[in-house]
Design a protein around this nucleic acid. Structure first.
Lengths: 168, 168
DNA sequence: CGGCATCCTTAGGGATACTG
DNA sequence: CAGTATCCCTAAGGATGCCG
């Protein structure tokens, strides 16, 4: 409840936020649509082929084709041709490091949904490989402390031009 | 790169994914638009008043009004009337616990943008209150281990009806 | 199999003007 | 200050059919 209070404790609004510099907004410009998220979800779940993406995301072919093209162009997916023994060569898509690094975003969305929209279980759980314990998205500082949302401060880089929130 | 491989190691696609049960997809239905994310960002940054949301998100008034209404209806924001000493009463919005718990999602988006779209610094950094060290979004299992994306297994709840990915 | 072309509908969002 | 009302444009996405 006081998450915002803590976060904003030292800040005073002055200029309008520079949307073009906000990392979150720019990330949303890369994966702005729900269908892009669903395609990425299926890439994480192991889909590689066009038809699998279509079937699993339950989106239409033109939409999936568009997302795949955009995600490849953005460098989140890459083409791979592969062949199962005895079968013909197939075209596929695979997460790049850049795409794979989006996993915490997907995991955080998943976790929030399971926690707050829990009228029905999603039926999927993330586990630590080998250990078997459930995996959660957490905040942690460089000193190794677990951090709650209420313990986060917003630090503004004053050297950057037109700092969005100048201290009073 | 092998994030998907690890994640999908034990899985075989069979049925189409049940979109209505996926926690991630349902979360995206609550905060599907970029403007909703921007409004939430500003709520975390301390905005409370309508005009502040409009100015800081750089969205139009009708859009902000719509998002605020929807986010209140969804239980992520709540109305608060407050009064600064000597001023008149103002109407405001505040994050609920449900809304505040979305912070890891926003933080993860921010972190990815700073890491992969880093042509220009966002000028904002998250710090651990008191400690001062930068805060990161991490994966961690219940046993306390740090977990990388490649070490995540997907566990399917077989008891649920029409499990989306049945093991072979 | 792995798409693209076309057409259509709905959702998201800006601009402007107005109101309690 | 805190919004609504109206109008209009663009983006997202489904359905269908075709194609190398």
């Amino acid at each position: 409840m006081d998450a915002a209070i803590h976060l904003a404790g030292r800040l005073e609004p002055r200029d309008a936020w520079r949307a073009d510099r906000c990392a979150m907004a720019r990330t949303l410009d890369v994966v702005r649509t729900k269908s892009a998220m669903l395609v990425l979800r299926e890439a994480f779940y192991g889909a590689t082929r066009f038809d699998d993406f279509v079937a699993r995301t339950e989106a239409s072919e033109p939409v999936v084709a568009g997302r795949l093209r955009e995600l490849v162009a953005a460098g989140l997916l890459e083409h791979v041709d592969y062949r199962n023994p005895g079968e013909r060569t197939r075209k596929g898509y695979r997460l790049t490091d850049k795409g794979a690094d989006l996993f915490p975003v997907l995991a955080a969305l998943m976790q929030w949904g399971d926690r707050w929209l829990g009228d029905q279980s999603s039926g999927v759980r993330l586990e630590h490989h080998g250990c078997g314990e459930p995996v959660a998205v957490t905040l942690r500082c460089a000193a190794g402390h677990g951090v709650t949302s209420g313990e986060v401060d917003l630090a503004i880089d004053r050297s950057s031009p037109r700092s969005p929130y100048a201290a009073r």
